[in-house]
Design a protein around this nucleic acid. Structure first.
Lengths: 152, 152
DNA sequence: TCAAGATTTAGAATAATTCTAAACTGGAGA
DNA sequence: TCTCCAGTTTAGAATTATTCTAAATCTTGA
């Protein structure tokens, strides 16, 4: 039987169960690779790219391949456990926070901040006949630290 | 002297003047290539990719190169005449509508709809110390036509 | 007119992602 | 238990999107 990676120290059993359930609901199998990738995405919620997730996953599963990381991420996205985030031209990032929130992106240092949406947003009914599935809100600018540096 | 392309039939002089002014304010030169690319982006506002813009621009300027289209688009973005839009993984799209608006994207047919933002959005003050430059809002789902097809 | 710097060009290079074919895995049924 | 099958993984090739490079060309200001 598969022993869960030491990287995943908090609520492993619960998260494993949730993952397993979601995967099978989505018609996917529960595999060690998917478990590792999901653990990596949950562990450091800094909106990593697929490449970054690949590197981190290799630490506990050195034989994992590039294509598998993409496959796992696609499965996780389809199952609603992870969201893809496009903040700039280039690599897609991944976010395991499935609450309704927006991303504040610092154009200077590249850091991403999750900010919950307070009120029910106006996107729900903005276009007649359009059936909304979800929305992505990216706010660009300078984070407090970078704004301070620039000003002086 | 450069004669403006027949593709640009409405308000050419005004748009040319606006373009010229914005470019020089941004420290760029006014070139035929930039004029053609901007005309193409204005002409059919269907959020084309750089590749699509390249193909359309070749119709009136067959010798233009790929790199130049990217260069021109970057200049236009920097000058605030065009916005880059990331709606999916893959190629960046370009939008010449500089009003505050969001993009409704049909995941079925790929069509993009501009929808103005009614009220002052809550993104202005969402994160303490963050200096907002602009925001991008993408709403995913099904357009009226595709939602109708799926339902039946 | 000339020089400096900006721009354009074709094509090479890089980055991000997807595809391919072969090997592997685990569960269903004999 | 054995075998088959579909799903999954793997390495590496292929594709797509974008950026880089170096040479040629163009503009602008002195």
């Amino acid at each position: 039987m598969f022993i869960f990676s030491p990287a995943m120290h908090v609520g492993a059993k619960k998260i494993g169960g949730e993952l397993s359930e979601r995967l099978s609901t989505g018609g996917f199998r529960f595999t060690p690779q998917r478990q590792h990738v999901y653990a990596v995405v949950l562990q450091k919620r800094d909106h990593p790219t697929a490449e970054e997730i690949f590197i981190r996953t290799k630490r506990t599963m050195p034989e994992i391949s590039h294509a598998t990381v993409y496959n796992c991420l696609d499965a996780l996205v389809t199952c609603g456990l992870v969201r893809p985030v496009q903040l700039e031209r280039g690599a897609t990032r991944y976010c395991p926070n499935m609450e309704e929130h927006c991303h504040y992106f610092c154009d200077a240092c590249g850091e991403v901040f999750d900010v919950p949406l307070q009120k029910d947003s106006p996107m729900k009914t903005g276009l007649k006949g359009f059936k909304v599935d979800h929305f992505d809100i990216a706010v660009h600018g300078l984070c407090a630290a970078c704004a301070g540096k620039t000003k002086k």
